[in-house]
């Protein structure tokens, strides 16, 4: 017990240390006499920009708009991916019908849909959520299918010989056996959601983190740009950690450590 605590502490300390070193190095560079703060804003300026935007209320609105898009797109995309992925991975007929379609669409980067989505639906909230949904769906569904296809045969055989129907095997064996893959699908989808969100907002949004980045570039507010980058990193990090915690809870039975 003591040893584990020691390792955890060591790990936390080391992680914090590496971040501190990078920050210190950055700050040191910005303090050099020939540094142009408009290109490399010092850390205090970045922090100041954070508080200015909080006071103006613009950061909260922005973050709210972006998180709303992320959650909605992520939720719809992954839900569809799990439903369709399970069916495709388990039922041969559905696989033959749908899998070629997924395989054909999969290599297309979701951002390639931006022009056509704008043409069809305009620069609307719906378009942005749709884009995130597509991105989440595509990366997640592939994992779900892989999970269903990697269900060890002996578990399926064991359940069948105990008299489980095909659907019971699906529900009580295939889905739980595939959960490690499904959760990985969720995590990759979350990363995809962030990538797509920022890209979509850079191009076509009147609000959101991507919009604020764009605004920062236009008015040369480098400290704002840096601040938003840090915010995006922090949000994505917190969400991924939350997911890992959920994963750990759901996967107590698994041999894997993380």
């Amino acid at each position: 017990m003591e040893r584990i605590q020691k390792i955890l502490r060591g790990r936390f300390v080391l992680g914090a240390l590496s971040i501190a070193v990078v920050l210190a190095a950055y700050q040191w560079i910005t303090m050099q006499p020939d540094n142009n703060p408009a290109l490399l804003p010092p850390i205090p300026n970045i922090i100041a920009s954070f508080f200015t935007n909080i006071e103006a209320g613009s950061l909260q609105t922005t973050l709210g708009a972006s998180l709303y898009r992320i959650f909605l797109g992520f939720f719809i995309g992954t839900t569809l991916a799990v439903i369709i992925g399970c069916l495709v991975g388990w039922y041969k007929t559905i696989e033959y019908l749908v899998d070629p379609l997924i395989e054909a669409i999969r290599p297309i980067p979701p951002l390639a849909y931006i022009p056509i989505i704008i043409i069809w639906f305009g620069i609307e909230e719906f378009s942005r959520v749709l884009l995130i949904t597509i991105a989440c769906f595509m990366v997640c569904v592939v994992n779900v299918i892989a999970g269903m296809k990697n269900v060890p045969q002996v578990y399926v055989d064991a359940a069948s010989t105990m008299g489980a129907s095909r659907f019971q095997v699906f529900r009580t064996v295939a889905v739980p056996a595939a959960t490690p893959f499904i959760i990985t699908g969720y995590r990759i989808a979350l990363a995809a959601a962030w990538t797509t969100l920022v890209a979509a907002e850079l191009i076509a949004a009147p609000s959101g983190l991507g919009y604020m980045l764009q605004e920062g570039r236009r008015y040369f507010l480098t400290d704002q740009v840096m601040m938003i980058i840090v915010i995006i990193g922090a949000c994505a990090f917190i969400m991924d950690r939350t997911f890992r915690a959920i994963q750990k809870r759901l996967m107590v039975w698994s041999e894997a450590r993380e």
Binding site: V154, D157, M162
Partner: peptide
């Protein structure tokens, strides 16, 4: 019923839940 040569215990169920799998379904 068949006891397989390989390990076929469901890793996502506790020992008790494995045992009562048949009755449950």
């Amino acid at each position: 019923g068949m006891v397989f040569q390989q390990d076929a215990v469901f890793p996502w169920m506790t020992v008790a839940k494995n045992i009562s799998y048949g009755p449950r379904i």
